[in-house]
Simulated scan of single mutants.
Amino acid sequence: MTGDTRTTHFGFQTVNEDQKAGMVHGVFTRVASKYDVMNDLMSMGIHRVWKDAMMDWLAPRPGQHLLDVAGGTGDVAFRFLGRAGDGARATVLDMTAPMLEEGRKRAEAERMADRLDWVVGDAMALPFEDGTFDVYTISFGIRNVTRIPDALREAYRVLKPGGRLMVLEFSQIPNALMQKIYDLYSFNVIPVMGQVVAGDRDSYQYLVESIRRFPDQDSFAAMIREAGFSQVKYRNLTMGIAALHSGWKI
């Protein structure tokens, strides 16, 4: 690092902070049209079970307003609205317009159009007033943010008192042997799958590497507390391949 230039990671690369957002934007622009298909293939459909588990713990209620960050294809927002009932709304924010376009094309988006908003924006500088939302979710997106503590502080700011944060993200398997097996699968299968299905090996190589750079469950829980949240807890999913983190703005 020299002068005032700060660095961060882009997968296993070290890059200047002001470069990362554009690089991540490029990844998700390239994979947008195949994003949902690849999620199903990479996880063998288990990501749907994880998102249902997220809703089970979240327990959406009528009248709540959700902000789903990095939620371009709408998976979480659709689930939330389907469970929350009357008066609930969802705002889907993503930095990549093509991801939002893919979300808008889905059948659920048409059925729920009067309760959905789609916004291009940055998780580190949300374009909303303080205390706007009842619930903030982010699924498989927080690890792509340049400065995660900034995004968590923004989440705290835009939530109402009594609001809830929930993060679904890939994590670390506590068993070393199982983690090694998972790593072999991730690094040897997923980039090849990305090349065959999406015509883009490099983007999926980055996504695998970004998972390995993300903090473990306890370290990330500490970051959430540092941002101001209370009652911070987590639940491992599928042996810790993914984890749900929950916190409350008191």
Results as ranks from 00 to 15, higher is better:
146 T>S: 09
75 D>V: 01
75 D>Q: 06
66 L>E: 04
78 F>M: 09
241 I>S: 10
167 V>S: 02
109 A>E: 03
48 R>G: 07
150 D>S: 15
50 W>M: 02
88 A>Y: 11
125 A>T: 06
233 K>L: 04
32 A>V: 05
75 D>W: 04
171 S>P: 00
8 T>H: 10
76 V>K: 01
159 L>R: 12
116 L>G: 07
181 I>T: 12
225 R>T: 14
184 L>C: 06
72 G>E: 07
37 V>L: 15
61 R>A: 14
209 E>R: 06
244 L>D: 04
6 R>S: 06
234 Y>I: 02
135 V>Y: 06
244 L>F: 04
157 R>W: 03
247 G>S: 05
18 D>S: 11
195 Q>P: 02
100 L>Q: 06
7 T>W: 10
47 H>E: 14
143 R>E: 03
172 Q>W: 11
145 V>K: 04
168 L>H: 06
7 T>I: 07
30 R>F: 04
219 S>W: 08
17 E>D: 08
185 Y>L: 06
139 S>A: 15
132 T>E: 08
43 S>R: 14
83 R>Q: 15
55 M>Q: 10
158 V>K: 09
35 Y>M: 00
243 A>S: 15
125 A>E: 04
131 G>R: 06
104 R>Y: 11
162 G>H: 11
192 V>F: 13
119 V>K: 04
44 M>I: 12
79 R>E: 15
194 G>N: 10
4 D>A: 08
186 S>D: 01
64 Q>Y: 06
154 E>W: 03
50 W>G: 02
217 Q>C: 00
66 L>F: 14
113 A>K: 13
123 A>F: 09
14 T>M: 07
100 L>G: 05
248 W>R: 10
125 A>N: 10
126 L>A: 05
62 P>T: 05
176 A>Q: 08
27 V>Q: 04
245 H>Q: 12
30 R>P: 02
98 P>D: 11
91 T>H: 05
68 D>G: 10
174 P>N: 00
209 E>I: 09
103 G>K: 05
9 H>R: 15
52 D>L: 15
143 R>M: 08
102 E>T: 03
199 G>N: 11
240 G>E: 00
130 D>H: 13
147 R>I: 03
78 F>Q: 04
104 R>K: 14
236 N>F: 00
155 A>S: 05
31 V>D: 01
156 Y>K: 09
7 T>R: 10
100 L>V: 02
109 A>T: 01
129 E>N: 11
99 M>R: 02
209 E>C: 08
111 R>K: 11
218 D>V: 04
140 F>V: 09
123 A>Q: 05
77 A>I: 12
147 R>W: 02
185 Y>E: 08
188 N>H: 13
230 S>H: 15
212 R>A: 01
236 N>Y: 01
49 V>A: 05
234 Y>G: 00
68 D>A: 15
117 D>N: 13
117 D>F: 10
38 M>W: 02
134 D>G: 06
144 N>E: 00
6 R>K: 13
132 T>V: 09
9 H>Y: 15
35 Y>F: 12
67 L>G: 00
51 K>Q: 11
123 A>I: 07
73 T>D: 09
102 E>K: 09
190 I>G: 00
89 R>N: 11
20 K>L: 10
46 I>T: 15
153 R>N: 14
127 P>Q: 07
109 A>M: 01
219 S>P: 09
